[in-house]
Computed example of a mutant assay.
Amino acid sequence: MSARDEVHAALRRAGYGVPGADRLLDRVEAAAVAYAAGRPVNETLLKAREAAADLFESEAGERRPMWRVVITDSESPTGIAPVCTATGDNDEHAKFDHIGRPMRDVEGVYGCCPDPVVETYSTVLAAYLVELLNADTEVSGKSSRAAADATHEPAQAGGAQ
């Protein structure tokens, strides 16, 4: 089975019809060809990416932060936020497990965490957006990789929607 066939099958399982899966794959292939040829893939996307980078720089302190799934007021991992890079006395993520051992709450949002925090109301959508944003950050090569060290690893969404 070719890679295209595998992706096509995955899109079908995700609910895309045959025509929709074909259109999406055709667009992805066209974008890959344009990228390989050194042409801008999508001017609107490039402009949106730069506008978002300006926002992230003012809110999170860097243009391409790594992202994580967070628990917001919904008490489920349905939100997304930049990875918190607070350290030392500024780090508010310390909590204790059920027997009193210290641990780090990587899914919580605290005063030390950078904005923006976005509620998606869906564990699936939150995980998907984190993967997209982090892939975009990695492709741009402009992220502070120190933000994703072992103590600040982006959390994975779990549970059913």
Rank of each mutant, 00 (worst) to 15 (best):
L125N: 11
G20N: 10
A53W: 12
S122C: 06
G88T: 01
D149Y: 00
M103K: 13
E107L: 07
D105T: 01
G15L: 12
G141Q: 15
V118D: 06
V69G: 09
G38Q: 13
H93K: 05
P102A: 15
H152P: 04
E153T: 04
E75K: 14
S144K: 10
V7I: 04
T123F: 00
E138N: 06
E75Y: 10
E75D: 10
E43F: 02
I99Y: 08
R4N: 11
M66K: 07
M66A: 09
R39T: 15
E43G: 03
E92M: 09
L132R: 15
V117L: 03
D149T: 00
D105N: 13
T87I: 11
E62L: 08
P114W: 01
A135M: 08
V7M: 04
H93Q: 03
N134R: 02
L55M: 11
A3F: 02
D5L: 05
R63E: 03
A148N: 03
R104E: 06
R23M: 03
C112Q: 03
G79P: 12
A14V: 06
G141V: 11
W67P: 02
I71N: 07
L133D: 07
A37H: 13
E6F: 03
H152V: 00
D22V: 11
R49T: 02
R68M: 01
V18M: 07
V41K: 07
A14S: 06
I80A: 09
D73N: 07
A155D: 06
